[in-house]
Design a protein around this nucleic acid. Structure first.
Lengths: 220, 220
DNA sequence: ACGTTGACTTATCACTGATAACTCATCCCG
DNA sequence: CGGGATGAGTTATCAGTGATAAGTCAACGT
């Protein structure tokens, strides 16, 4: 019988002895492609992935313990690029405040350009994942970069001497809030994205700068 | 065969003629309970719901077109309470700035106490849902409440005359950012939640208050 | 020439959301 | 009291999901 094999790759030549890893790479690539196409991680099925690569479903389990591990491995790659993209944006200027702003812009842009990985990394309960520890490591590193950037703003006197940790968390949550809602509620009547991000960054800067408001201005 | 019927309700007396709605209510209640128990909407299956209520799976489709509609109906209820809770918190003081702070605290608290509904309402692509329009209406109303609250801060001179719309969006995204990340990444070494929320609110207040920073303060 | 073994397949499981077709009691109308 | 009509739910079943156990088969080292 052997009905027409799905849609794409007819079949795939069996890898030679030492070259089992090539399938692993192909699986990652195909999964990433399908994730981008469908826009949702659980819309891509094990069978669709297997079919796209030209193997049978169980072959996947020779290279990944389960589906979420495969998905997470794809996201992990994105996260590396994510971190270095934000870092690069932050290093593109010497002004620490402007650097933070550029980090924020880069963060949001990356999230919007890779919504599904972003969703998986930052918008789902992550606990239960296998290779999660690796991600935690990478995440901790990225977060430390942010704390350092905030510290530089404090050192130059641009920011008042707040706790850099809580300030960094505040900035992260603010930037994540924009990214997250833009992804989740695309139908909301959002203003121009750049303007929104700039507003958020400006609020953070004004909120953290070196000025102590005595009492509110011209109230009645 | 008729194996032991799942775990709970053996069976359920057939409703009388006009009382089909009672099953609908029971379904909503059971779904809500299971959602809270399992902590995830797609961990509760149609079969589990049917079993908990004591009917067979297809009966559910007499009252809801599909599973997501059922889930959304549950979330919709939460949303009503959500909106009115935040509103009540906001009305508990006359100071408009303090009012905003209380709204923020109530928002985060509610999100953390109802993480799965919050996730479904604000952290998933919502487009594809049937009864989504209703929610959009309720959401628009809640959002308008926030804009009004911001406007009051501007009117009293507490906030400088910014665009209340973009200021409200900024506040919303900030508060959502905290809520969302606290839900998604519970293993992150968060500081005290109240302190974090207060920080976020303070940043917003300082960022929006009536003061124009000429240049940064006491730098070296 | 042969057995080991890495790479993959066949067959199947338990479960998911969903649908078509059927039963059956209740109610209204005569 | 009798007989449809119909609301309320059931039985049986479908296609698709992630996952596993057991088998196949060719390449390699000896």
């Amino acid at each position: 019988m052997t009905a027409v094999r799905g849609s794409s790759a007819k079949s795939r030549p069996r890898s030679r002895r030492g070259e089992g890893e090539t399938l692993r790479e192909d699986l990652l690539a195909a999964t990433e492609r399908l994730m981008i196409e469908t826009g949702s991680a659980d819309a891509v099925s094990i069978r669709a992935i297997a079919d796209a690569v030209g193997v049978t479903p169980p072959s996947i389990y020779l290279h990944f313990p389960d589906k979420t591990s495969l998905i997470l491995a794809v996201c992990e790659r994105h996260f590396e690029v994510f971190d270095s993209t934000v870092e690069a944006a932050g290093r593109s200027t010497d002004d620490p405040v402007e650097s933070l702003r550029r980090r924020g812009r880069a963060y949001v842009r990356f999230g919007l350009e890779n919504p599904e990985p972003y969703r998986i990394l930052f918008m789902t309960r992550a606990e239960t994942a296998p290779q999660y520890d690796t991600l935690v490591g990478a995440g901790a590193r990225a977060f430390r970069h942010l704390v350092d950037a905030v510290q530089r703003c404090i050192d130059t006197g641009a920011y008042r001497p707040v706790d850099p940790l809580i300030a960094a968390i505040g900035i992260w949550t603010a930037v994540h809030g924009v990214t997250s809602l833009l992804i989740s509620l695309p139908d909301f009547p959002w203003p121009n994205v750049d303007a929104l991000v700039d507003h958020v960054c400006e609020i953070q800067n004004r909120g953290l700068n070196d000025f102590v408001p005595e009492h509110q201005g011209g109230a009645s």
